[in-house]
Write a protein that binds this DNA or RNA. Structure first.
Length: 577
DNA sequence: AGTCGGCCTG
DNA sequence: CAGGCCGACT
């Protein structure tokens, strides 16, 4: 009855760490193993039982049976669709579709052990329960039949008098059209039966029907809970199962499904009560696209948040919570989100760069304090970069600890890669916004899906070396340009988002603009630019190693990297666009 | 000796 | 972006 938190946790964790499977699973709407294993051939129900000529003599009974069967079928196919008119459940004509869904749902098991023991082992139990369920259903149906046949002829007659020419068509047609919900709605709307049945009989019938529905519902729910909550099953499967159920109505669905979904008894399945908690990453963009407004940037989005976060929220916290934060941030909905998919036009300040800033790439001549307001500048540009130094050791030292915790977590679904892929490169580039000089331990902590070797580590270190190279080249270039433009005060050298320098950097590290460059990076950039400006202005560039002091300063200004980057399921697929 | 950062080159 | 080279550091 009460929501089972342990159900949601592995689901969320698995989904976010299994971005790829979840993404695939997100397209696989509904796990139909129940439907497949159910002894009833639902696809045959309408044609065999309802179209049987011998049944035409008793349309009323047939209609009732059809309703009962419809209820059960709806529940078996998908608890979330039990009252819906979705074509999913009523797709006798589209068995391939259901098969496709099943296939898609099983796809992610490739990530786990190929044997998929959970599924194979659980199936007999499910089948047995479903068999019992069927027997129970048949028993109850028999009781319904008996109860109705007591006053049978009369009711049939009366009913026939009301218009028998309608019903023969209605039954099969109803099922063929996939109107699964009609049975329920008829129950709810109390059709004309009471009019031609003796009230005691009708009352008992009603009770019987309600009991039948309730019993079937409970049985189905217990079976489903057993399936979905089975502990030995890999969490990934569990998550996907739920995802599949949830996907049942997030897929392109006919009108009315959502309404029926809302009518569901929420207590039927614990996990369904809070589907939003476990919404997989791959699925979220559908409902929460990246191009949601991301400006104005929350002023609290700065370095401090990330510096305090690890201490207060270590990885020992429920992973699903973290993953939800990750998902939220990745999708541009976190308070400190850096993700945006809209492109420069999202930013008013970026869309129409002034001619002045276009001419002066550092954009500093505009002297707009608002762009570098103290509230968004935890790092005083000129004087106090070293203020943050005391924070750095703790940040660095925590990496190993986090790494250890990370490794102990049941990330069985994390696919460890031997080599580095373009997604890793992209991630590294984005990480450059926060850290210019990452240690190898930090890299290991933030690439948990990478099997680090000496070669891989040096390759990644080399990446950042190349990033720095480009970065410093740009700094020197624009610093010299500022000097040649006659600028004398380095303090005016700030790098707003509509500057050429920013665009150059953004183009290099954030091609596609699917990440919102953090303010801290702009602050570091401004500082670096000023340092280069000072050095060149002072003629220090005659010294062959004149950049080294600058490097030393910049190397101490690494920021804490947001936790989102630690997700092993770092959603590379979000960048594939 | 091993590692790392920077520079140069392709 | 990677490879080669060099210097600094441990």
């Amino acid at each position: 009855m009460e929501p089972n938190p342990t159900l949601l946790a592995p689901q969320a964790r698995t989904c976010s760490h299994l971005a790829e499977p979840c993404r695939k699973g997100a397209r696989s709407p509904c796990p139909q193993e129940l439907g497949e294993d159910y002894p009833f051939r639902w696809s045959q129900v309408p044609s065999t039982s309802l179209a049987d000529p011998s049944c035409l003599e008793d349309e009323h009974v047939q209609a009732k049976r059809a309703r009962v069967e419809t209820i059960v079928r709806g529940m078996c196919l998908s608890p979330s669709l039990q009252s819906g008119s979705a074509p999913v459940g009523a797709s006798p004509g589209c068995p391939g579709k259901a098969r496709d869904r099943r296939r898609k749902q099983r796809l992610p098991t490739q990530q786990g052990p190929p044997t998929a023991p959970g599924s194979g082992r659980r199936r007999p139990g499910v089948r047995a329960e479903l068999h019992l369920l069927q027997q129970q259903l048949e028993r109850l149906q028999g009781q319904v039949l008996q109860a109705e046949r007591g006053p049978g002829p009369r009711s049939v007659q009366q009913r026939g008098g009301c218009g028998p020419h309608v019903l023969p068509c209605q039954g099969p047609h109803k099922d063929l059209s996939g109107a699964d919900g009609h049975g329920v709605s008829e129950d709810q709307h109390s059709p004309a039966q009471p009019g031609f049945l003796p009230s005691p009989v009708w009352a008992s019938l009603e009770i019987l029907r309600r009991e039948l529905t309730r019993a079937v519902s409970q049985a189905v729910d217990s079976v489903l809970q057993e399936v979905l909550l089975d502990p030995p099953g890999p969490p990934a499967r569990l998550g996907r199962s739920f995802q599949g159920l949830l996907e049942g109505h997030s897929e392109p669905s006919p009108p009315g499904v959502s309404a029926c979904k809302d009518a569901l008894p929420l207590a039927v399945l614990p996990g369904r009560v809070q589907p939003q908690i476990g919404v997989p990453l791959g699925n979220l963009p559908k409902t929460k696209p990246l191009d949601s407004p991301r400006y104005p940037i929350p002023p609290q989005m700065n370095l401090r948040r990330y510096q305090s976060a690890p201490a207060n929220c270590p990885l020992t916290a429920p992973s699903h919570i973290q993953e939800n934060q990750i998902a939220s941030q990745l999708l541009g909905h976190g308070p400190n989100s850096h993700w945006g998919g809209g492109g420069p036009q999202d930013s008013p300040s970026q869309s129409h760069p002034s001619s002045e800033t276009a001419l002066r790439p550092w954009g500093a001549a505009r002297l707009q304090p608002s762009l570098v307001s103290p509230a968004r500048c935890p790092l005083p540009l000129a004087s106090a970069p070293l203020e943050r130094l005391p924070l750095l050791p703790s940040v660095k030292m925590e990496q190993s600890g986090r790494r250890a915790v990370l490794e102990t977590l049941p990330f069985s679904s994390v696919h460890i890669q031997e080599g580095l892929n373009p997604g890793h490169l992209k991630k590294a580039k984005l990480m450059f916004f926060f850290t210019r000089y990452p240690s190898s331990s930090l890299l290991k902590a933030y690439f948990p899906d990478v099997q680090f070797s000496r070669c891989i580590t040096s390759q990644m270190i080399k990446w950042f070396s190349n990033f720095r190279e480009f970065y410093y080249i740009q700094m020197e270039k624009f610093a010299r340009q500022a000097i040649s433009d006659g600028i004398t005060n380095p303090k005016v050298l700030v790098v707003p988002r509509d500057s050429e320098l920013f665009r150059a950097l953004n183009m290099h590290y954030n091609k596609g603009n699917d990440f919102e460059v953090p303010d801290c990076f702009l602050e570091i950039t401004s500082l670096t630019l000023q340092e280069f400006f000072r050095a060149v202005s002072a003629g220090k560039d005659s010294d062959p190693s004149w950049k080294k002091p600058i490097y030393k300063i910049i190397s101490k200004l690494d920021s804490d990297i947001p936790e989102i980057f630690k997700s092993s399921s770092y959603p590379q697929e979000l960048f594939r666009s």
